[in-house]
């Protein structure tokens, strides 16, 4: 038999012997694992290096172009109901638990359906009493990027900054979209 074939056959035999050893040992050891995993492993979440900030004025310019941007509001639902950027989606970001998976999935589906090039997160928690408040937008943006949404950015300064930049908003009682 020619040497290359012999080497290949030997390699297959070694692999086969290793498999027999592996499966045999696994069958008799008390901490053996099932041959086919019955429940998914609790793997680490996908982690994306996110660091994209967009200026409020630029975000406002984008808003003027239909279909160019999808805004995502990181504030609690009641703040969103009071006032939000026209056409924005609500994905409340909890400092403890992050955004809900359902909200992330909804944003992802909307971004894909509308084929938007940029998804801009905004939202500051508190700050109405003159304090700085807690920036939620960057955290939400990172989570949006982690679930695979492309073109995610965030705006600092929340809704106020966007309004100063000229972004159109919808207030409670305007008959706004959900």
């Amino acid at each position: 038999m020619k040497t290359p074939y012999k080497v290949l056959i030997q390699a297959f035999a070694i692999t086969g012997a290793s498999a027999v050893l592996a499966l045999g040992t696994n069958a008799v050891r008390p901490d053996g694992i099932p041959l086919v995993a019955d429940i998914p492993y609790d793997i680490f979440a996908r982690c994306v290096d996110y660091d994209v900030q967009v200026a409020a004025a630029e975000a406002a310019d984008l808003a003027a172009v239909a279909g160019a941007v999808l805004y995502v509001d990181a504030r609690p639902a009641e703040d969103f109901a009071r006032e939000h950027v026209k056409g924005a989606l609500s994905a409340p970001y909890s400092v403890l638990f992050g955004a809900a998976n359902d909200d992330l999935a909804r944003v992802k589906a909307a971004a894909e359906k509308q084929s938007v090039a940029r998804v801009v997160a905004y939202g500051v928690l508190g700050g109405a009493d003159g304090g700085e408040g807690v920036e939620l937008a960057e955290h939400l943006a990172k989570q949006l990027a982690e679930v695979g949404i492309a073109g995610v950015e965030h705006v600092s300064g929340g809704l106020e900054a966007l309004k100063k930049g000229g972004v159109e908003t919808v207030q409670e009682g305007d008959g706004a979209e959900p």
Binding site: A22, L23, N26, Y41
Partner: peptide
């Protein structure tokens, strides 16, 4: 092996068992 997110779940354990012995 599962963390690499390459193999389907059905093959993860087989890979995890056989590879070290090989």
């Amino acid at each position: 092996v599962a963390t690499y997110q390459i193999l389907p779940l059905e093959l993860v354990n087989l890979q995890a068992l056989i590879l070290p012995w090989a």
